[in-house]
Amino acid sequence: MTANRNELRSVVKERELKHTPEKVWRALTQAPLMEDWLMKTDFKPEVGHRFDLEADWGKVSCEVLTVEPHERLSYTWAAHGLESVVTWTLTETAAGTHLKMEQSGFGPDQDRAYHGARAGWEQFLDKLEKVVADLDEEDVL
């Protein structure tokens, strides 16, 4: 079966976290915490805010698209020819939070970026889980 040459792909990762959506949201939206699990950043959870994510390998240029506190966050992700959107969806569960991350916009000629993102997000989410676990409930804003 041949893929449509114009078909865009997405990387989707989901986790069940034993923490409240408020606690997970804090790790997703506070720059000092984001630096602990993602990259150095000047992020602010404000629609239209432009920010960068910086790593040893380079910079990602981003813009906040959606902010629905404790439920949904999305931002553009532009780096190395990739123009994509990262969307975080938090759903409260009896045990804590179902977290879904989707990075959409990988073109058929972007296999390297697509496979790199699949591996990279697993590592970022592992670190995110540790950051969230280390937060005190009292510190949640």
Rank of each mutant, 00 (worst) to 15 (best):
D109Y: 02
T97F: 10
H80T: 15
P45D: 00
E22P: 00
H19P: 06
D36F: 00
W57K: 07
K44H: 03
E92C: 01
P32L: 04
E46Q: 07
A95K: 15
D42W: 02
H70R: 10
P21W: 08
F106P: 11
A94V: 09
H70G: 00
Y114C: 03
E54D: 02
H80K: 01
H98P: 02
A79P: 00
W88G: 04
Q30Y: 03
H80W: 15
D42T: 01
A31C: 01
P45A: 02
T76A: 05
F106I: 07
V67Q: 05
R118Q: 14
T89F: 00
Q103R: 12
V85R: 08
T76R: 09
P32I: 04
L82I: 10
A79M: 12
E83K: 13
K23V: 02
G48W: 03
G107F: 03
Q103D: 04
T29Y: 01
E71K: 15
M101D: 01
R112A: 14
M34S: 02
A78T: 14
P32E: 05
A94E: 10
D111M: 09
T93R: 14
E46I: 13
R72Q: 11
K44P: 00
K44E: 07
T41W: 02
E71I: 09
Q123H: 09
A55L: 10
K100E: 10
W25R: 04
V85E: 11
R50M: 06
T66Q: 07
A113D: 10
E92K: 11
H115Y: 14
R50S: 15
L99D: 10
D126V: 11
G105C: 04
T93D: 09
A113N: 12
A117R: 11
W25E: 00
A113L: 15
K44T: 00
R112Q: 09
W88K: 02
A119V: 06
R118G: 10
P69A: 10
L82K: 14
M101S: 06
A79Y: 13
L28M: 09
W57S: 14
F43S: 09
W25M: 01
E83T: 14
C62E: 05
D56L: 11
E92N: 01
M101N: 05
G48Y: 05
R118E: 15
L90M: 09
P69M: 11
P32D: 08
E63V: 13
V64F: 06
L73I: 10
R118V: 11
F106Y: 14
L33E: 06
D111R: 09
A113R: 15
R112G: 03
K40M: 00
A119G: 01
K127F: 11
L73V: 06
F51S: 08
A79T: 12
E71F: 07
E54P: 02
K127G: 12
R50W: 02
S74T: 12
D56W: 05
D42G: 06
P45S: 01
F51G: 09
H98Q: 14
P69S: 14
M34E: 02
E102I: 08
L125H: 15
T97I: 07
G81L: 02
A95F: 04
G81T: 08
D36A: 07
T29E: 04
E102D: 07
P69I: 06
L38G: 05
